[in-house]
């Protein structure tokens, strides 16, 4: 199993259902800054007309996650299926992982005085055998599709095979597992919602990158949370 998520982000309407569902599902700390998941927006003016791109995002559960390496206590670790988790009981709050993350995906949970982040609903759903995250389930326009990259028959792989996608900040070498589906029918949105220099992938092209990083990291994966 290798968990990942595809985001058909052109359907996002910034209703913030995912943000709220996440907080309610996981009992996340309250506070605008305390988000495991978010919809951000970038704005510009094109010939005097406003243009807004919406960017639903969360932890990328990088296949080659830098946050895991820096953690002095193993509080950041790979759980089942390569999900990047934090163990709040062993976090000494050195915040190294927050500095290491290129996506600002981590924050301090003041209730535990420890670092918190998206878990793909690992402890509330996946361990119970559910295969949808709270954010996916709640989404009115179904932006997200969670799934298993090892399951060739699965819906996620089928979608990745059908459509082109890109990942965020590829240059950082993190091999992220949030796949952003290129808005294939709207060139304007595709052009303006992501940097033109970004690599656009098909699954066939990206799979070896994932496989390589997985081979490197797989030994660190834990079977179940202790």
């Amino acid at each position: 199993m290798n968990f990942a998520m595809a985001l058909d982000y052109q359907s996002c309407i910034d209703c913030k259902a995912c943000e709220v569902a996440c907080k309610e599902e996981n009992g996340v700390q309250l506070g605008a800054d305390k988000q495991r998941i978010w919809v951000s927006q970038s704005e510009k003016s094109i010939f005097g007309e406003p243009f807004v791109a919406l960017h639903p995002s969360q932890c990328n559960h990088c296949q080659d996650a830098p946050c895991v390496d820096v953690c002095p206590t193993g509080s950041s670790y790979f759980a089942l299926g390569g999900i990047v988790m934090t163990n709040k009981d062993t976090c000494i709050l050195c915040k190294g992982c927050m500095e290491a993350c290129p996506y600002d995906a981590r924050f301090v949970d003041d209730t535990h005085v420890a670092v918190d982040k998206c878990t793909f609903c690992y402890d509330t759903r996946i361990v119970n055998g559910e295969m949808t995250t709270a954010c996916q389930a709640t989404c009115p326009t179904k932006v997200r599709l969670f799934g298993d990259l090892d399951d060739e028959e699965g819906e996620l792989i089928q979608m990745l095979n059908k459509r082109k996608f890109y990942v965020l900040k590829e240059d950082e070498g993190t091999v992220p597992k949030l796949f952003y589906m290129l808005p294939e029918h709207d060139k304007n949105y595709a052009m303006n919602s992501v940097d033109e220099g970004t690599n656009i992938y098909t699954w066939d092209e990206f799979k070896p990158i994932i496989e390589m990083a997985k081979a490197k990291r797989k030994p660190q994966w834990q079977a179940m949370q202790e």
Binding site: K16, A17, V20, A21, E24, T138, P140
Partner: peptide
């Protein structure tokens, strides 16, 4: 369909 918006989620 199959959704709950932010307000629906915040019903709690």
């Amino acid at each position: 369909k199959n959704m709950l918006c932010a307000r629906g989620d915040a019903g709690i």
